[in-house]
């Protein structure tokens, strides 16, 4: 896109935010989610080394996999000596939600060259998606919205690496993180994010079915209950929506509070 070539153009904040402004706004708007990720990253580091992953392995996982929920679950599976294939399959299903994020963002990013799409694709997380899709769906014609994404992604990524390192080092210092309620940080962050996804009858039913099945299937080995619950939740949502065809017409990147208000 020509936008990224205009390195020497004069700043024009009056008309549209500059690259720097977009980057900084992405950084700032991601701050609340970074706060939520701090204890979670530290616990991941601490949990990984106590579950039998090496310190180098934990750092590599944060650097290359970079998907918190699946890293957390993988650490739990390693401590139960689960086979590698099960761990990779669970990672796939847990991270499949990123495909929705990518599909929602893609129409806004199709003008970008590969040197932007590759790193931003790699850095796509729950947290950055929630922040960045809100920026992309604002109607102002800023050509630098990908700089906003970059600001969000760089902040999340560097914080995640730092917190993993702190967790590995502090693993011995905090022998029992759940005594401080730190094990709840991931859960409560997900509760906060879930509110923006549950926005009509079909998503509510998907959530309820997945929740009930996850509880009933909790005893299955190797976290298989999670996979079963996720699949049945998705099926329940699709069926509900097919019975209410009006909802099926809503575009996937329209996350509005009006939908939620209609339910309450």
């Amino acid at each position: 896109m020509n936008a990224s070539l205009q390195q020497n153009s004069a700043p024009s904040q009056a008309i549209a935010p500059s690259r720097r402004t977009e980057f900084w706004n992405g950084f700032k708007d991601t701050f609340p989610l970074v706060v939520g990720a701090v204890p979670f990253g530290i616990i991941f580091g601490a949990l990984a080394v106590t579950s039998g992953i090496t310190a180098g392995g934990a750092l590599a996982m944060s650097a290359f996999v970079y998907a918190g929920a699946s890293q957390f679950i993988a650490a739990g599976l390693v401590s139960n000596a689960a086979p590698v294939l099960i761990i990779v399959l669970t990672t796939f299903v847990v991270n499949l939600r990123h495909a929705l994020y990518a599909a929602s963002l893609a129409p806004h990013m199709k003008h970008l060259p590969q040197r932007w799409l590759a790193p931003l694709g790699f850095w796509l997380t729950d947290e950055s998606f929630v922040v960045v899709i809100a920026r992309y769906t604002k109607t102002d014609p800023s050509p630098f919205k990908h700089w906003y994404f970059l600001g969000s992604a760089v902040f999340m990524y560097s914080n995640w690496q730092l917190c993993t390192l702190i967790g590995i080092v502090a693993g011995q210092a905090i022998p029992n993180p759940s005594a401080w309620g730190l094990d709840f940080a991931l859960v409560v962050t997900f509760i906060g994010m879930l509110a923006s996804f549950v926005r009509n009858r079909a998503t509510l039913i998907a959530s309820v079915v997945a929740g009930i099945v996850a509880v009933l299937a909790h005893g299955l080995p190797n976290q298989m209950g999670l996979l079963v619950a996720a699949v049945l939740g998705i099926v329940a949502g699709v069926i509900t929506e097919s019975l209410n065809p009006d909802e099926a017409l809503k575009p996937i990147d329209k996350i509005t509070s009006a939908d939620a208000e209609a339910l309450s």
Partner: peptide, 22 residues
């Protein structure tokens, strides 16, 4: 697309509920 729409809701809930109830 229709199935993907429900993935975050289903996966996040499937992670949250056992963590809260067990």
């Amino acid at each position: 697309v229709r199935a993907l729409k429900f993935v975050p809701t289903a996966v996040l809930t499937a992670i949250i509920t056992p963590a809260v109830l067990y």
